[in-house]
Nucleic acid binder design. Structure first.
Lengths: 269, 269
DNA sequence: TTGCTCCTCACGTCACGTGAGGTGGC
DNA sequence: TTGCTCCTCACGTCACGTGAGGTGGC
């Protein structure tokens, strides 16, 4: 079968078939050594149609290459996993759209008094990792449990735990994120050398913050508060130092949606 | 404000800002003629943040450029319209995923007897247009009404109306599509010269077809039947001529999901 | 003076579409 | 012999990221 006929019957373009050949995703049954003419076999149609259908889902060729070589059951699972990611990304975008719509429709971003407090020098235990948005909760739970275990038996904790978001706020991809737990720690050797847990000392600094309810501690509802903190710092001639933080106050698990569970804060020089 | 500071405060990259400058989407307040240094103004932050948020939705820059220049109300509408398209495309993909899952899980594609009939030479009135999938219903309704109006008062209709899908079957983008209505027509001047309605004569030909229920007359449920028709033609040594057709039998509006409302067919040489 | 920031190319990414210019097959 | 199909570059698309190589500003 010539490439033209194969293209028609597989619903792929000739150009696409040439690329899939080059990538080894769908090599012709034979290639004429002299002319370079590609010849396809009828038995290759199934694979070609499968590739065509997966491409219509906008699945990257690399992932398609993995999936078409799997057993059907494993293929089904790989497809489901990938699709879960697609849907997760979409629901994030959807939230952003409805947020934008409310802004377009003249709904004022919520205002909140910005407060200022001084944080004394203190030691923090921290775990640092790249996480995607859906992984955030699991990262928080696990890391918090580990830090809790590490600090138990020490002289005590020295404040509420907090998350630091480096890079963009809640960026869709992979913002590095750090969970910190202030401690009164006199035995730094609780931290093993090769662990991902670190100890560092934060110097005394000021911190501007707003109190957020559980409902507001989400993305993109949090965005106007981030902007408000930045604006506050600018208006008061203070330089933000470092990334935004969520100081987790109270217990989020049983909290009502309008209970304050977070102080969104920014450290100041 | 330097480009670096503006980038940080707008949550855009420096590279992105340079591109938006080049495109005129977000030109700096001033550019040093000698050095090329860009200077941004605080008042540009709002626009920049809006662009940043819209880009996170994966909206193309061209559309962003339109939207940020609109009044809020018009912007809201433009965003909503665009998002409707995104959701429509997604629900199409979602349908394809669930179809694929059922195939992966070993569910056999439904079998149906392929039947053969001879279509005599006949005249058809037709309207030809590029439509996207969500527009299909509207296209069908409007065009059918127009053809009905045109053929009323003539000597009568000569068979069920049918849709021809050129290009891919129900392709996501813009498959050209033709709605045809066979007529007994002795006064060809019902068709005005500059109208998009055409008259042509289809020669006598054979047609292979399967009867589909209303539920099966959808995408991608229809796919295995398309493949089956093609396979049938091949197995019987017949050459398909032209694109697949949906012959619309009965009235789809009040039909039950498992009532036959369509003959999916393929014309043969 | 030393870093740091900024500048402009230029190339890579991803999955093709679309010619240009040339050849094979019936 | 004439179209038609096939071939291989090569460039464009889209919105950047990522250097290379060089300069400005404090």
């Amino acid at each position: 079968m010539t490439i033209g006929e194969f293209a028609e019957r597989s619903r792929l373009s000739i150009k696409a078939l040439r690329i899939y050949d080059e990538l080894g995703l769908l090599a012709p049954a034979e290639v004429d050594a002299a002319t370079g003419y590609r010849r396809y076999d009828e038995s290759q149609l199934d694979r070609a149609r499968q590739v065509a259908v997966l491409r219509r889902l906008d699945m990257p060729l690399g992932r398609i290459a993995e999936i078409v070589d799997l057993e059907p059951a494993a293929g089904a699972k790989a497809l489901a996993d990938w699709w879960t990611d697609v849907e997760a990304e979409l629901s994030e975008r959807r939230a952003l759209v409805s947020y934008l719509q409310s802004r377009f429709n003249g709904e004022e971003p919520p205002m909140r008094a910005v407060e200022l407090r001084t944080i004394p020098e203190r030691k923090v235990l921290s775990i640092n990792r790249h996480v995607t948005l859906p992984e955030t909760d699991a990262f928080f739970r696990d890391s918090f449990a580990r830090l809790r275990a590490l600090s138990t038996g020490l002289e005590g904790i020295a404040g509420a735990p907090f998350l630091i978001f480096y890079g963009e706020v809640s960026e869709d991809g992979n913002g590095p994120m750090e969970l910190c737990r202030p401690v009164i720690l006199d035995t730094p050797d609780v931290v093993e050398p090769n662990s991902d847990v670190e100890v560092r000392v934060e110097p005394e600094h000021d911190e501007a913050y707003v109190r957020l309810t559980k409902r507001e501690t989400a993305w993109p509802a949090m965005l106007p508060f981030c902007d408000a903190l930045e604006a506050w710092a600018r208006d008061h001639g203070r330089q933000p130092s470092g990334a935004l933080r969520q100081v987790l106050v109270g217990d989020r698990r049983d909290a009502a949606d309008d209970a304050v569970t977070c102080h969104l804060s920014i450290a100041l020089r």
